[in-house]
Design a protein around this nucleic acid. Structure first.
Length: 463
RNA sequence: GCUCCCAUCGUCUAGCGGUUAGGACGCGGCCCUCUCAAGGCUGAAACACCGGUUCAAUUCCGGUUGGGAGCGCCA
């Protein structure tokens, strides 16, 4: 009896926990480049999908035909690919007009979508007036009082209607996966325009229709959408009788506390890539900032998936600091094994495993390997300040084969012969061999340089 | 102007009435070391303010201040 009840409880919890398969979506509008704020939303969605074994829909929200550009869509796709956020499903809102139309007809039939005839200019003036007199700029629903005759007259005058969704003017509440209980009073909101005067849809209705048709289980987006969510829940309910789960994450703000805006073109992923930021450094930073986890470099998405939990996301805006990302980038490079970069080293026409192991701790960005490679293969024009000392050192260069011990053997011999030690011993050798004050450890570099080339440099030749 | 959210080291945060207020990044020092890194050890660094409630507030409540967001025929 007791046992069976526990079993029942367990089963019930399981069902409740996984009522359906997780399907999330990331829905950028192709009106600009993907920036770090969008990318964070994309990653969060991706991690949820991966963690739950669900699916990730990439949806291009291109209902604004004036501002949407195919080249932006391409750029967004490229950026997501670079980031390592892959999608299972793909859709473009512009291609789903019939479904949107059908939904609109349904709402018109039920009287929840009503025609309005005010001009944009008129509405704008009205808003100004409301704000000036200290009132919230909310649409007064004047069009709701229009009779059939009024409408016929306006139409006859050549006026075309735009259509608004009739809000319940009640409180809409949901349990936000990040913010907890949220309650929005739609009485404080304007009835949203769903269809423009020219017949094109605004983003609100297509978004809901597509979320329903693609069986989206969780809508995870920035907190700039919370009031939209109240509106959209009402549309969800009008159309399908239920709404998905919602999670609104805090927005990213600039290192100095200023707003991050896509429209200002700030901090696009494209720019980060050009700056030599590793995709996984960006992904690690964006997945971890604003969470209770330490911000650290992770080499694979799998690790980020393993550590992900919605509960770890905070409720306050997080600062995005490019300097911190650059630092994380270096950290990531330092922990990458040769196998992870082999192809890229080949592509960059630089050395293999020994070279990577010798220089990786000195990298801030991957492209630094190109600057370091000449230390090994030349040409390097040596800097020799004390010719006699260097000549003496050259005489003592041990015979090959060389390994990491060769450096020690050689420098001990030089020390014994010349009576120098410490910096006065090593500094001239470094300058002669690499022409630089600083650089990777010479015990690792020397075998790579090789005896012939080392000797040439010690003789003052460019090699 | 109105509505909503937030407030702990410089940054990301842990804390859920009694703690030497913990960790991570960054910063300083020491060690290692030919240098710069890397690595090891170590140090400095925070409860925004004012009122309540309470034996006791970082923690609960109210206000102030500060920050974020929304109020489009944008998304």
């Amino acid at each position: 009896m007791r046992e069976s009840r526990i079993q029942f409880r367990l089963r019930a919890e399981k069902i409740e926990k996984h009522p359906m398969t997780t399907i999330v979506r990331f829905a950028p509008s192709p009106t600009g480049l993907l920036h770090v704020g969008n990318a964070r939303t994309a990653i969060l969605n991706y991690l949820v999908a991966r963690k739950d074994g669900g699916k990730f829909l990439l949806r291009i929200d291109d209902t604004d035909t004036e501002r949407s550009k195919p080249e932006y869509e391409t750029a967004i796709l490229d950026s997501l690919k670079w980031l390592g956020v892959s999608h299972d499903l793909f859709a473009r809102q512009s291609e789903r007009a019939p479904a949107h139309q059908e939904a609109a007809e349904k709402l018109k039939a039920s009287g929840q979508l009503y025609p309005c005839y005010e001009s944009a200019l008129e509405l704008d003036r009205r808003r100004q007036r409301q704000i000036a007199s200290g009132k919230p700029p909310v649409y007064d629903r004047a069009a709701l009082n229009l009779t059939a005759e009024d409408r016929a007259r306006l139409e006859a005058e050549g006026k075309r209607a735009h259509w608004r969704f009739k809000l319940s003017q009640k409180k809409v509440a949901w349990k936000d996966l990040i913010r907890g209980e949220v309650e929005i009073d739609t009485a404080h909101l304007s009835d949203p325009v769903l269809i423009r005067e020219d017949g094109r849809f605004l983003y609100t209705l297509p978004s809901v229709v597509d979320d329903i048709d693609f069986k989206i289980s969780h809508i995870i987006r920035g907190e700039d959408h919370v009031t939209n969510t109240a509106v959209q829940i009402e549309i969800f309910e009008a159309l399908s009788g239920s709404a998905p789960a919602f999670a609104h994450h805090p927005l990213l703000i600039g290192a100095g506390g200023e707003a991050l805006s896509k429209r200002l073109g700030s901090l696009s992923l494209k720019l980060l890539a050009e700056d030599g930021i590793e995709p996984m450094a960006a992904a690690s930073y964006l997945a971890k900032t604003g969470t209770s986890d330490s911000i650290a470099a992770f080499a694979t998405m799998d690790e980020l998936v393993a550590g992900f939990a919605m509960e770890k996301i905070g409720r306050a805006p997080a600062h995005f600091d490019p300097a911190e990302l650059a630092n994380l980038n270096a950290k990531l490079l330092h922990l990458l094994p040769f196998a992870a970069v082999e192809a890229r080293l080949t592509e960059a026409c630089v050395g293999g495993e020994a070279f990577w192991e010798a220089v990786k701790a000195n990298l801030t960005r991957f492209s630094d390997v190109k600057d370091l490679w000449p230390l090994v293969v030349g040409p390097i024009t040596p800097v020799i300040e004390d010719a006699a000392f260097i000549a003496a050192a050259a005489e003592l260069l041990p015979p090959e084969p060389w390994d990491e011990l060769s450096w020690g053997i050689w420098t001990k011999a030089v020390a014994a012969a010349t009576g120098t030690k410490g910096k006065t011993l090593f500094h001239p050798l470094r300058l002669a061999l690499t022409a630089r004050e600083h650089g990777p450890e010479l015990k690792k570099l020397l075998p790579l340089i090789g005896r012939e080339r080392a000797l040439a440099r010690l003789k003052g030749e460019t090699a």
